[in-house]
């Protein structure tokens, strides 16, 4: 098997260049999908028979919650690759994920509270799903704090990678908390084995929003990854090449 693609992936100048080329290919479709999903979710979708127009919070709550766990998983996988193959670019990618993930975890918590108040009668309960999501926020903040506290980049990479990998046990806990425990949080309506329990005019905007947010994340990640690679790189020759291009 030809492994040159893997070695090129490990090369910072190559990744820097590719990331710059790829960014608009994620950003524009993301923008279009999100605008279409906003129109579909706020205007076209009918009110829910139980929750009325309050259910429309799903179009921002589900995508932010999805990003919060998807970004964490991406971060842990990148950290593991960095640790196992000593790949600096993978460590840089993991470090670039944390800040974005923390924002969207906070957004999922706040939108969840704003949905909980009218539907459950309270902003917050110490429910398994809600508590696990709060722990996710602390994992992101802990990861960022740990990195900020270690001067040497290589040591910060290794220490924070271990934290990211250990913390990944929280991901299945978040996912299955509503099945394992008697949770106030509703069960999934889209990501389950059988058919989604939603009519198409409600479901389609949600799927567009989830896809749009996913592409948006990769666009933002690529920009942050380029910044991270530049900050780490000491070789003058490729810096000159990268900046002139």
């Amino acid at each position: 098997m030809d492994w040159t693609w893997f070695h090129r992936l490990a090369s910072p100048p190559h990744v820097y260049r590719i990331a710059g080329t790829l960014t608009p290919w994620f950003a524009w479709p993301a923008g279009l999908l999100i605008v279409a999903a906003l129109y579909g979710g706020l205007v076209l979708a009918p009110p829910d028979y139980q929750q009325g127009d309050g259910f429309r919070i799903i179009y921002v709550h589900a995508p932010t919650a999805w990003l919060s766990v998807m970004i964490y998983t991406t971060m842990a996988v990148a950290a593991a690759i960095g640790l196992i193959w000593r790949m600096k670019v993978a460590h840089a990618a993991a470090a670039s994920c944390a800040g974005i993930g923390a924002w969207f975890t906070a957004a999922s918590l706040v939108t969840g509270m704003l949905w909980g108040k009218p539907m459950w009668g309270t902003y917050w309960v110490w429910d398994p799903r809600l508590t696990a999501q709060l722990i996710l926020l602390f994992l992101y903040l802990g990861y960022m704090g740990l990195r900020a506290g270690i001067e040497d980049t290589a040591r910060a990479d290794r220490a924070s990678a271990v934290l990211a990998i250990v913390g990944v046990v929280n991901v299945p806990i978040i996912r299955f908390s509503v099945d394992w425990w008697n949770s106030i949080h509703q069960a999934p309506s889209v990501m389950k084995m059988d058919r989604p329990s939603m009519p198409a005019d409600m479901l389609v905007p949600l799927l567009l929003m989830l896809l749009g947010f996913t592409l948006y994340f990769f666009a933002v990640l690529l920009v942050r990854l380029r910044a991270e690679i530049l900050r780490r790189e000491r070789s003058a020759s490729w810096l000159r090449e990268a900046l002139s291009a």
Binding site: G54, P118, R224
Partner: peptide, 29 residues
């Protein structure tokens, strides 16, 4: 449908996070 106080702040905060992350990433680069 009476849920304005809950729906609009949710959207506002989410898109605040979306825009903030674009600004942070571009400034950082």
């Amino acid at each position: 449908g009476g849920y304005a106080w809950f729906v609009w702040p949710s959207y506002l905060l989410t898109f605040l996070a979306v825009i903030a992350n674009i600004v942070i990433a571009r400034r950082s680069l």
